[in-house]
């Protein structure tokens, strides 16, 4: 089950130390998109620590995370789960070798209701 190389890469990309987690669950308690996620923030931390990363890479949860960083803000142990989710997402994107969002696609997608933060987050989420 454990994939050491992959785990090391995720930790390197994210700069997160999942061992700091004390399993309080505040990240998942604070998550505004909890119900849409198959794996919740605290599970990401736990599964990365165990090296159980392939199921995360295959999960829709990677894309349903809003990158709102509420879990990062409120984690009492400074674990920063959203950065870990982002790192797994990047691992997927890099493996596929393609950006899912190119800057030139942006003007077509613009809409007055869309907050700028969402565009910034989308860049974080969908491109290398």
């Amino acid at each position: 089950m454990e994939n050491t190389n992959l785990k090391e890469r995720i930790l390197e990309i994210s700069g997160v130390n999942p061992r700091k987690c004390m399993k309080c669950g505040k990240c998942s308690a604070t998550c505004p998109n909890y119900d849409e996620m198959e794996y919740h923030p605290h599970q990401f931390v736990d599964m990365v620590e165990k090296g159980n990363i392939e199921p995360l890479m295959a999960s829709e949860s990677l894309w349903t995370c809003l990158s709102c960083f509420a879990c990062v803000e409120r984690c009492p142990r400074s674990v920063e789960p959203a950065k870990l989710i982002e790192a797994v997402r990047l691992a997927v994107i890099r493996a596929q070798g393609g950006n899912h969002l190119k800057p030139q696609d942006i003007p077509d997608k613009l809409d007055d209701e869309l907050p700028q933060q969402a565009i910034v987050s989308a860049f974080r989420k969908y491109s290398k």
Partner: peptide
């Protein structure tokens, strides 16, 4: 008693 934390 619930094992977990209040988020907000």
């Amino acid at each position: 008693y619930i094992k977990g934390m209040v988020g907000k």
